[in-house]
Design a protein around this nucleic acid. Structure first.
Lengths: 212, 212
DNA sequence: GAATTTTCGGTAATGGTTTACCGATACATG
DNA sequence: CATGTATCGGTAAACCATTACCGAAAATTC
């Protein structure tokens, strides 16, 4: 197995999803050009991406085994070892994530939510209990959760993260629009809607300018 | 103004957010090293990033004018011209986006939602009406919405996007976990949670492996 | 007002990612 | 069984992004 870049890593889930579709359709083999056409990548890029994660080689004129690719990618992405996570901040977004059905397929299990709002504490959202945020120190270690999903306002996100790290969080999935500092050994991944929107707007302007 | 990359574009919203915080604190000037320390970038990168969007030069020993930076970035990011958008699929996620308060600050105005569920049609979510999806062709042009925010299941996302494009959508903000094909002149930006999670998991594994 | 410090802008070097190309190989076809 | 074609893996080139460096300039200090 070769080395791979962050960009490649970001593409792998899309490959896996497509391969599962193919499997459901009964397709046994798939070629790089076909994959590229479907997902919007060049065939060279597809080949290079898959070479990094695939144990077996592709066969000329046929392509690669769909079943094998799925196995390789699931193993590579860690979808077969489940990590426990908690959601901190069960507002609209936090609640939506707790209701998200497909995290389980990705090796992520949301175990519980935490919030300060009395109207939420004790409720079940997406089948998981919402606990009082005060009980984080007590419950997070017991739940054996290593990922904290941060859905609180930006203004308090840093202090919430500090608490989560203190309770044993090794990964922070940050949905608050702010940069977070964490100690060595803890990882932060931020989902930044503002960035995504900036890219969309910019490309829309570009497309519009080109037209004229 | 120089050329800039997509990566830089993604960083600009974070800069802007920080500069607004500084303004609220009454800070008038800010230097690149200070910005970098706060946001986790190198000072060289900050300088290069800001040189691309800033009209005025920074001053040695002082830095750049916070007020000027905010103006430059807001103009550059298009936060001063508002685009109308609609949400298609008012489930947990779509509803959360309709309730999101800060899109207005980013030049995005959500005008309405569309869904097929009778229990949602006619409701108000985040102060905006939810209409029957059947009325998309009728209403989308009247609303003058150019962005469609896709929050439907992946299986129907492509057909929904085709309809939205047909109704005049020039930009697609895609929250469905699937690749979408659109005609020339239309832009798609996908928010891919699976990718983000893959990066988080991978970096957690790396951090964990390093520790030993 | 001279010396020191901080930050600046610009350019060069580095590192990383994507694209392009090429000979080899397995399958399909006649 | 020979020929043609689609796809493969690998390597080289091109492209883009980040990092490092340096002389200059504005503010501060003495």
């Amino acid at each position: 197995m070769k080395t791979f870049s962050m960009n490649q890593l970001e593409r792998y889930p899309a490959y896996l999803k497509y391969f599962k579709e193919l499997r459901d359709q009964g397709v046994e083999y798939v070629s790089s050009p076909r994959i590229g056409a479907k997902l919007g990548y060049s065939e060279e890029q597809v080949r290079k991406d898959l070479q990094c994660v695939s144990v077996s080689a592709g066969r000329p004129k046929r392509g690669r085994s769909v079943e094998q690719l799925i196995e390789d990618l699931e193993t590579f992405l860690g979808y077969r070892d489940v990590s426990g996570a908690i959601v901190i901040g069960v507002g609209h977004l936090g609640g939506a994530l707790m209701n998200f059905p497909s995290f389980n397929e990705m090796g992520l299990e949301i175990l519980a939510g935490f919030d300060v709002s009395p109207s939420l504490i004790g409720q079940k959202i997406g089948g998981k209990e919402v606990y009082d945020y005060k009980r984080l120190h007590d419950l997070m270690p017991k739940l054996n959760a290593h990922i904290a999903i941060i859905c609180v306002p930006a203004s308090i996100a840093q202090s919430v993260v500090d608490s989560a790290v203190c309770c044993g969080a090794k990964g922070i999935w940050n949905f608050a629009p702010t940069h977070l500092d964490v100690p060595e050994g803890v990882v932060v991944e931020t989902v930044d809607l503002a960035s995504s929107l900036a890219v969309l707007s910019h490309r829309m302007n570009e497309a519009n300018a080109k037209k004229r």
